[in-house]
């Protein structure tokens, strides 16, 4: 038993450190806030569909103290926002999600609002934001991608 642990410990440590070392900040020019308390990105307005509404939504969502990070995009019809919730407030995840959704719905009445607390949605939206910032994403492509991510939320498979 002891021998097994000794043999296994070195590769295990290596895997651990490699998995930790992957964390880097986004360096694609999305202006991040200077506040250390939360994680906000602002996509500049050069994208074909202006992301000003998504930026506004993110800022207003981050005013809740339970929310420590937000990513989101908007198309011409809908807003899709993913939030990261403070650890101890994850006990009320469903309630918080509902409250934030209705808040945003009141604020942006003309658009369909979807809020998710899922890590996967957060990661996907982060990537989409970075694409919006760096590439010329066409309106159609943005719609497609947004719908694809939205489908993930209700994916049961």
């Amino acid at each position: 038993m002891k021998r097994i642990w000794k043999k296994a410990s070195l590769p295990a440590l290596l895997v651990f450190f490699l998995s930790v070392a992957g964390c880097t900040d986004n360096e694609d020019g999305r202006s991040a806030s200077s506040e250390p308390d939360y994680d906000l990105t602002q996509v500049s307005n050069k994208a074909e569909v202006s992301q000003e509404i998504a930026n506004q939504a993110k800022r207003s969502v981050l005013k809740n103290e339970e929310v420590i990070g937000a990513r989101g995009v908007n198309t011409s019809e809908q807003i899709l926002v993913a939030i990261e919730v403070r650890q101890m407030d994850r006990f009320n995840l469903k309630k918080l999600e509902k409250r934030i959704t209705s808040d945003l719905e009141n604020k942006f009445k003309e658009k369909k609002v979807t809020v998710s607390t899922d890590k996967k949605i957060y990661l996907e939206l982060d990537e989409l934001e970075s694409q919006l910032q760096t590439e010329d994403l066409s309106k159609k492509k943005l719609d497609q991608e947004t719908n694809r991510i939205k489908k993930l939320i209700s994916d049961q498979a």
Binding site: D118, K119, D155
Partner: peptide
């Protein structure tokens, strides 16, 4: 599960 979320198409729901 974090590994699956980051590198495969799984959400927190179905991971």
């Amino acid at each position: 599960s974090t590994f699956y979320i980051h590198f495969f198409h799984f959400t927190e729901q179905n991971v």
